[in-house]
Each structure stands twice: as structure tokens, then as C-alpha cells.
Write a protein that binds this DNA or RNA. Structure first.
Length: 309
DNA sequence: AACGATCCCTGTTAGC
DNA sequence: TGCTAACAGGGATCGT
């Protein structure tokens, strides 16, 4: 599934391939792949046609292209935003083949002439055209993103774990707030964004925290370790995922398995923990498949030795 | 306000 | 063998 590292890989691919191109035509092949607009898919098409894809920007798992009236115009007011959901992909073609079975939208680009396909097998992803709005925390952060503007539907999303402007102190404090299990807080994109189910399990394993430990019972140093682990594991995945896209194939779907060999917890139920050898467990937590080591990741702090213990 | 439950959707796999 | 059911998942939204 595409989480932050995969989405960033897509962003880089699109930035190198389609930035600066003009949207010459829009073919929505499945209406529900476009977020609800009053005028439906036709409104989507009429809003974006003729505009230029300028900067490609990401926050967490949200990706968007600023839309400029002309190439080089740096006062965009609109964004073409996308969420890949579970299975979204972008593919760029010089000579467009017949659309793939899962192709939900096809954009014809000009200067250069290219075809940009949005594919999505499980249809949880979408495209959206929406205004860029100011945000209190000062903008998307990350590479090449000077504007303090976010697509309206992304305004509530917190800075992500790889955002250099993320306030680590405030973020780790926020991770310790509330009665929810720490994994659910880590998956809450308004706190720190970009972490999905796979990297949540990985980060918790690295930080040795039980996924169901109540957030308020996580120590300050554990919360800092957790944030650091999330950052570390996603940075490593990005380093691997980012190496392998062909010139005209935007590597996207996160299922390509390039990072799978490095996973310590996710998908490894029954296998021995590489730290302690105890078998890894699996259960459903908050509706999500969850993997952890029952020995390394205790639900409660180890009891201090005392009378009666 | 905070949090849990529900729903969206389809291809694959497990089970009978 | 052929069918059905469970499952995977992020996030918006609604109800408590």
C-alpha cells in the first residue's frame, strides 16, 4: 500500500516527467475516481483543462500539482490533488496504449505531449481539483515547497514525519495524548501524517512499544523514539523505492516489494522476532491487521521489582 | 471534544 | 471443482 515513501517516490517521478506540461484533455473513465463536485466529472475536466501542472507537492500521503494558468506562472490558486488510497498508480506514456482495465482517468498532456493515466484497482483513491488555501502551520514543507498553501481538503493534515519543519517536541507530545491505543494515534493523520498500517507496525516494533498501549501511558522518551523510528523506517524505504523507477514508469503502487525484505513485523506473524526470537503475533487492532512481538513490545511497562513480585 | 463504528470497493485467497 | 465469504486498506462521516 502506498504510504509516505511510496507517495514521495511517485511525486519525484511525476515531477521529473510531467511538471510544466499543460493539461490538454481529460477523460474520466470512472466517475467515482473524481471527488464529488457539483458539476460532476465534467466540472473537473473544465476546471483543469488548459492549465499547467507546475510544482508537484506532497504532505503525508496526499499529493498534488499546483495548477498555473501559464508555464512558469508562480501564483497558482488551484491544485489538482490526488490520494492513492490502497492501490492508486500514475503512469506516463509517450505513445498511449489502450487504457488498462483499471485506468480510471486519462489526462492528455501537451508540451511535452504525454499521456498521464491514473490507475486504481481497489478504487479508494481519487483525484480532486480544489482551491489552495493558507494554512496556520505555514505550508507543506519538504522539498521545493515554499508556498504556505495547501489544497483545502489537506488543510487539516499534520506535517509528516519526513517534513523538516515538523516540530518533534510538539509531535511527540501529541502522540502521548488521549486514551486511544498508540497505534491508532500514530495512524491519525492530523497528528503526524504519512504513517500507514505497515510502517506503523514497523515503527512500533523498532521503538518496542505495544500497539495497544494507551497513548497517555507512553513515556516521553518512548514517544520520541517512536517518532524517530517512523522517520527512520520511512526514510530507508524511500531510499530503496526511489532508486527503481524507469524513465517513463512512475513507480507507485507500494506492492512492488522492494522494501518487503526489510520488514521486521508486518506480515511476519509466527516468525521469530529478529531481536529476541519470540514468535511475532498478529491481531486486529482498530480494524487493522497488527503485528508485534509479545516479548519486546509489552502492553504495560515492566513492573518494578518490589514486595510480592 | 474525543473517540468508536461504519462505509466505500474489488481482486485475491481461504474454506467448504 | 465451483461456489461463497472473508479479507485487505485510508479516510470521511456520523453517532455517542
Amino acid at each position: 500500500m502506498p504510504e509516505l515513501p511510496e507517495v514521495e517516490t511517485v511525486r519525484r517521478g511525476l515531477a521529473s516527467l510531467v511538471a510544466g506540461a499543460r493539461i490538454a484533455g481529460v477523460d474520466i473513465r470512472r466517475d467515482s475516481c473524481v471527488r464529488l463536485l457539483p458539476g460532476g466529472p465534467a466540472e473537473f475536466a473544465s476546471e483543469v483543462e488548459g492549465l499547467t501542472l507546475s510544482r508537484l507537492v506532497r504532505r503525508g500521503k496526499f499529493l498534488w500539482a499546483e495548477l498555473a494558468p501559464e508555464p512558469g506562472d508562480d501564483a497558482p490558486l488551484l491544485a489538482l490533488s490526488a490520494h492513492l488510497g490502497m492501490s492508486g498508480q500514475f503512469r506516463v506514456h509517450v505513445d498511449a496504449p489502450e487504457p488498462h482495465r483499471h485506468c480510471r482517468a486519462r489526462l492528455a498532456l501537451a508540451e511535452p505531449d504525454l499521456t498521464l493515466d491514473f490507475l486504481d484497482q481497489r478504487t479508494f483513491g481519487y483525484l480532486h481539483v480544489e482551491p489552495l488555501v493558507p494554512t496556520p502551520d505555514g505550508g507543506p514543507g519538504g522539498e521545493g515547497t515554499p508556498l504556505p498553501l495547501l489544497p483545502a481538503s489537506v488543510a487539516h493534515i499534520g506535517r509528516d514525519a519526513l517534513d523538516p519543519q515538523l516540530d518533534d517536541v510538539a509531535a511527540s507530545r501529541a502522540l502521548r495524548r488521549g486514551s486511544r491505543g498508540i497505534k491508532q494515534v500514530l495512524l491519525d493523520q492530523t497528528v503526524v501524517s504519512g504513517v500507514g498500517n505497515i510502517y506503523a507496525d514497523e515503527a512500533l516494533w523498532h521503538a518496542r512499544i505495544h500497539p495497544e498501549r494507551p497513548a497517555h501511558a507512553v513515556t516521553a522518551s518512548s514517544a520520541r523514539a517512536l517518532l524517530g523510528a517512523a522517520r527512520e523506517v520511512m526514510a530507508r524505504a524511500l531510499a530503496q523505492g526511489g532508486t527503481s523507477f524507469d524513465a517513463l514508469y512512475v513507480n507507485v503502487n507500494g506492492e512492488s516489494g522492494y522494501f518487503e525484505r526489510s520488514l521486521e513485523a508486518y506480515g511476519r506473524a509466527g516468525e521469530p522476532c529478529s531481536r529476541c526470537g519470540a514468535p511475532l503475533r498478529r491481531a486486529t487492532v482498530g480494524g487493522r491487521a497488527t503485528h508485534w512481538c509479545a516479548r519486546c513490545q509489552r502492553r504495560w511497562s515492566a513492573r518494578r521489582k518490589g514486595p510480592g513480585s
